[in-house]
Write a protein that binds this DNA or RNA. Structure first.
Lengths: 325, 325
DNA sequence: GTGAAAGCGCTAACAT
DNA sequence: ATGTTAGCGCTTTCAC
């Protein structure tokens, strides 16, 4: 691999001049600019970003640590992040913690070691990762899920209100024994969606199943509910992957939706109106969530000590057939 | 941020000793090891990976450049990659080229500049990105799609055979005017799936629509087919996202599947048996694809000049209701 | 406008 | 077993 000195020699200038040319400094004689550019092409020179980053002690990479790469919610959000990042001159790399706190810690450590310019994280609930992040000077934005005990910029949807609306919707439709399938304790989305559900019940007995945010978890949770003594007549499922599992379980058992059991899922999906019955969902503004997080990160990098912002975006109920008794 | 010299001073040793301790060299006095570790903790020291990478002139990061982060096929594949990578001591960062050659080129350039230890790429068809990659000494593995004119390690499924099987399946079911919706020219999966389709027709007139591999493309392609003079009685759709679009179009127009129109989609999806009618798909061994690519990359890093391997995995038809006249 | 030289933080020879 | 030293490739004063 040729270095900047090889280029300098080839062009008959100093390394400093090559550097100036490559970084768009205007203070170089046009004739030499041309010679440098020619040499660069001739040698196939590619600046070593590692060396540059070391010298400048900063990088132009953002790490986006998401908790499940297989979840369309996150992938949509990433699009929003990327679009803003690119405009601001950053590249985005994704890290998949897979709802696994240990993996999350590994990626947080890597991002810090690699001196990433900023980090956007959807926490899988690791307080250790959160502490590490908060103890570092790296700009951080929490997205979707609040960082455990973290006073950092945060972009979330109004999970509690959305869950309340979803549950009320089921009550209004005439269901009375409504259960909730939610995610792990300590993950803010899981906890807040549960709280919204509970508050909507207004006294009725809550029936809660905690599981992971995965498809199999949804399947098992639904199976448990169906065979329980106080079998519910409707279920609010607090994320998309679990909803797929729940649907599969209902199909396997031949449970009639919405007649025998009403269903509302969290997160919009492209196939919500292709399944039968079509699926009532709570739609989140995913792309906007990503854009907003990226904007906060840009601002945070510019003003590291500004007061942390918290942005709460609304989510929207999309009533379809699965909840229409 | 404390440096290794701060730790050395705090522990009363030299920087070299700190380095040895942190890198697990066994040649350090246990008592000093303890002092170093204490100092590391006291200062909250975190090694600067940028400096380390520069000095070692290598990194422990792989870049995985995929063409659509929203496509479950890729996200499943990434899981396979990650599991092998982690075991081999690498971290994986994802880059989303979004089926956009320009973005792909940007990410390839970034990965090379950042001296990534290896690259796994699902090409969006950019020959420029391919050339850049081939002209560099970085270990590369192509996945899902062959790299344009690239003699590199490659892991793909047998797209042609799978498409032929899918088309034959429709013929066997009694459909006769079968159309094919496929992806952009120059993307190997699009071209090979088309070829498999054509070869299965055995003389019958092929009806082909080229579009991007996105949902909207599938919708538009199906809309065009439905209103064409020689309206087909079955369609083979060459990827999952386009299939969603096609299904939506069929639902919008009230076309009865499989009676009026038979359908086979490429790529298995979690909701294939939740839609009505359930969807016949071609299932790819996604996780295995990822594992295999990662293994090839590990081997390639170990033996840079070995002969490039090409691994072809089988895909499997999953007949369901959408193709059963 | 240009080059010489220092130094970012680390590791690995080398010397002891 | 440990410290000293050089240098990875680049950018950025500083002096001209």
């Amino acid at each position: 691999m040729p270095t900047i000195y090889d280029v300098a020699r080839e062009a008959g200038v100093s390394a400093a001049t090559v550097s100036r040319v490559l970084n768009g400094r205007l203070t170089v004689d046009p004739e030499r600019v041309a010679r440098v550019l020619t040499a660069v092409r001739a040698l196939g020179y590619r600046p070593n970003a590692v060396a540059r980053n070391l010298r400048r002690s900063r990088t132009t990479l953002w790490a986006v640590i998401i908790s499940d790469i297989g979840n369309p919610f996150f992938t949509a959000t990433v699009r929003g992040i990327e679009d803003v990042a690119q405009q601001a001159g950053y590249s985005v790399v994704l890290c998949n913690s897979d709802e696994n706190p240990a993996k999350e810690e590994t990626y947080v450590a890597a991002a810090l070691s690699e001196q990433m310019a900023g980090i956007i994280i959807a926490s899988s609930g690791s307080t250790k990762a959160a502490r590490t992040l908060l103890g570092s000077p790296v700009p951080v934005v929490a997205i979707d899920r609040e960082l455990p005990r973290g006073a950092v910029d945060t972009v979330v949807v109004d999970n509690e209100a959305a869950a309340r609306a979803a549950t009320r919707h089921l009550l209004d439709a005439g269901y009375s024994r409504i259960a909730c399938v939610t995610g792990p304790e300590g993950v803010s989305t899981a906890d807040l969606r549960l709280r919204g559900y509970t508050s909507a019940l207004a006294g009725a007995e809550p029936v809660v199943v905690r599981t992971d945010f995965r498809e199999q978890g949804g399947y098992d949770a639904m199976a448990g509910l169906l065979s329980s003594a106080a079998r519910p007549d409707a279920v609010f499922v607090a994320n998309n992957l679990m909803t797929v599992g729940a649907l599969r379980c209902l199909a396997d058992r031949g449970v009639e939706v919405p007649g025998e059991l009403g269903l509302v899922g969290f997160d919009e999906t492209p196939w919500a109106d292709l399944v039968r019955p079509s699926l009532t969902t709570v739609a989140q503004p995913t792309y906007e969530l990503g854009r907003m997080a990226a904007r906060l990160l840009v601002d945070r990098i510019a003003a590291p000590s500004a007061h942390p912002a918290k942005v709460v975006l609304p989510a929207e109920l999309r009533p379809r057939r699965s909840s229409a008794r």
